[in-house]
Structure formats: structure tokens, C-alpha cells
Design a protein around this nucleic acid. Sequence first.
DNA 1: CTAACATTTTTCCAATTGGTCAAATTTTGA
DNA 2: TCAAAATTTGACCAATTGGAAAAATGTTAG
Lengths: 208, 208
Amino acid sequence: MNQEGQTRIQREKRELILEAALDVFSVQGFRGATVDQIALAAGMSKPNLLYYFPNKEAIHHQLMERLLDTWLQPLEHMNPLGDPIAEITAYVQRKLEMARDYPRESRIFANEILRGAKQIMDLIEGELKELVDKQAGVMRGWIERGQMADVDPYHLIFSIWATTQHYSDFDAQVRAVLGPERNGNERFEGASRYLDRLYRKMLAPDAG
Amino acid sequence: MNQEGQTRIQREKRELILEAALDVFSVQGFRGATVDQIALAAGMSKPNLLYYFPNKEAIHHQLMERLLDTWLQPLEHMNPLGDPIAEITAYVQRKLEMARDYPRESRIFANEILRGAKQIMDLIEGELKELVDKQAGVMRGWIERGQMADVDPYHLIFSIWATTQHYSDFDAQVRAVLGPERNGNERFEGASRYLDRLYRKMLAPDAG
DNA sequence: CTAACATTTTTCCAATTGGTCAAATTTTGA
DNA sequence: TCAAAATTTGACCAATTGGAAAAATGTTAG
């Protein structure tokens, strides 16, 4: 036994299980994923897995809790003292990189929110909403000082989430529509150029 | 017996089942939905339902096939002879109205594509891709004639889908973040103003 | 009216799956 | 070293669920 009531094996195995769960849940969704699949992916038997987590829902919930932090990190890094357009387009790029590099995480969230976000409503109404409120305040400051166009910060943030995560969540559609010839990573390069353009033009302060 | 090998009762009951399936699938997803739930929602017994459809997948597939048409309709209505900015912002508004008025349809698609779109890949690679290709061609024409900014038509279409459907697919998150005070239909009015602004500014032809 | 056909219900089954339990094995600390 | 604690396994169970079969009931055309 050790600090926080966790043994070394417990820490390692829980980690292993959450990594496996990320794989399975992101492909199968919550209902579609079976405890057996997760156990197999984690290299252990089902009862063994259930020794570490009381049930399937607990795995999912803890996974989401942990992911939310990484997921929100780019938004935290917006600097109120920086140039708004540089800050926001940098945020867009960081989100797009995450969609490219962490599609499993993105899909798990999409899945959960599609289903009504019942398991993580507390996190959304808490942590997430507070961060959005804070950064919306920062943007309002920029707008008042005439440094960027006067647009609703909340809808701006929604549109950034939507446009970037689209490339992970709806990857199957994007690939199919672009066709095999445009299916390397240039799909993300194209998105990068397009989104940079989009937000740069929209955020440019209006004359007057 | 009647035309197309369908009796009156068959036509009516199939319709009833598809409407019920829309309700159930859009809330529970494919894996989460049970045949019993759909049968109950359609006001009949499970074996009775299975008299009309061979299995659960068949219901889902036919539902999607039928929905795709309505879903793509707004994109078909873009007029190559009209003003690009008017045409595209009108398209955005129509898509946003559909997200507001037909959230079940939107969520079913989102769910299916998230899962890899295996059941409707044929439709996406066929019907959908062809329409997108065609309208991308129209946009390229507009761009060449200097009537709108030079942006990638495919990514433009993706961003329109993403930003509008966000309000149905991720409704739970949008509501939670906006908080109870902004939760009437003004959430769609705000989105409408924001998106109109967004695309108007981005599409404005560049000087030169 | 009635035979052919369409629809519905009752009953049932096999597979899947989340989870339990007690026994066996391994690890750890004194 | 060795007993207590932690971990793992195998066997098992009950609930859910997709679907089949056949009997019962309803409908319709001649």
C-alpha cells in the first residue's frame, strides 16, 4: 500500500485500462463497447478489470473526467494581453492539431454529447462553462477596445469547436467526399489554410 | 395486393415504423436502440414489426436512405446564376433552420458518421459526394469570375455543415454553456446572426 | 360466403453481456 | 521466511435482446 491508497500495480493497471477504454469507447461508443473488449484490449480478464473499476460506467466517467482537462487546455492558453486575431487563430490551429492528433478523444466527447451528455453534465456546466465564460469575457474586452470585430464570443467559440472537431468526428465523411486522391494529411493542411483565412477575415475589426 | 407489391396496410405500417425508428435511433443510437423500443413506439409488437422489416439493420438503413434526400435538399437549391454570397448565406440559413427543426435527423447522421458510416458509405460516396462535387464546381466558377473570395469549396461546405449542425448535434453542450437565461429559440437567432456575419465577411471578394 | 392471402399474437430460443463469488495465486512488509 | 494483503482466474448467473416458428386472427377478391 502507498500514498492515496493506491498500490503500484493499481496505478499501472488503472492506467492500462483507461488507455484501452479510450480505444474501445471511441470506436464503439458507450453502449456498443463491452467490458470484455476493454479487458481484452488491456490484456486482462473481465473479472480482473472489474477488480479495478466497479462497473463499465465508472470507467467511462473517469475517462471523460481526465480527458476534459487535456481537451480544454488550448482554450486556457489564450492570452488576454496578446493580439486578438493572433490569439484566436492560434487557438483554432491548436484545436485543429488536436483533432488530427487525438481523434479518439474528440469522438468520445462527440458521442457523449450527442447522447445528451448525461454522464458529464456536471463537468460541462461546471469546469467547461466557467472557462468559456471567462474567455468570452476576455473577448468582450477586445471587442470594446476595437481590437476585433463585434461578434458574439459564445457563438465564435462554438464555431471554432465545430469547424475543427468536424475533421475528427466526421472523418469518415470528409475522407469520402474528398476522395482517395486528397486523403493524406493534406486534408488537414487544407483545413488549416481555410480556417485561418475564415477567422482572420471575420475577426478583422470593422471600419469606424 | 397492390402496385409495387405493397398493400395499403404495408405502406402505412412501414411509415409508422420508420417514424418510430427516427425517434428511437436519434436518442439511443443504433446499438442503444432496441427493436422492442421501436415496436412499442410504433404501437405494435416486436414480431409484428419484424414482419415488415427483416431486422434492425434494415430499418436503420432504409431510414437513412430516405433521410439523406431531405438532408441534402438545401444544397441542391443553390443557383449557379445567383449572387454567390446571397446563395451561400441563404444555404447557411436553410441548414441552420433544419438543425433547429429536424434535430432527430441531424443526430442520426452524426451518430452514423461517428461510427464510421459503414451502413451508408455507399450513399456518401455516391449521391452525397456527387452533389458536393457538383456544387464545388459551381463555386469554382464564381471564384474564377471574381464574384467571391478564393477559398477551397470543399472546406467551405464542411464548415457550413459543421457550424450549423453543431446546434442540433451538440445541443446539450450549447444549452449548458449558454446557461438557462439564453435557452429559448434566441440561441438559434444568435447563431443565425453570427453565421451570416461569418460567411458574409469571409466570402467577400478580395480586392484586386 | 369462403378460400386464399395478409397480418398479428403467443411462445420460445440462443447469444450476448454486465456483473458476482469463491478459490487460487502472487506480492509485499515485517 | 512467512503470514497478511493484494491480485488474478474460472465458473457461474440473471437480464436483455435479436430474432424464429407456428398458430390464430383478420381481410379481401371472386
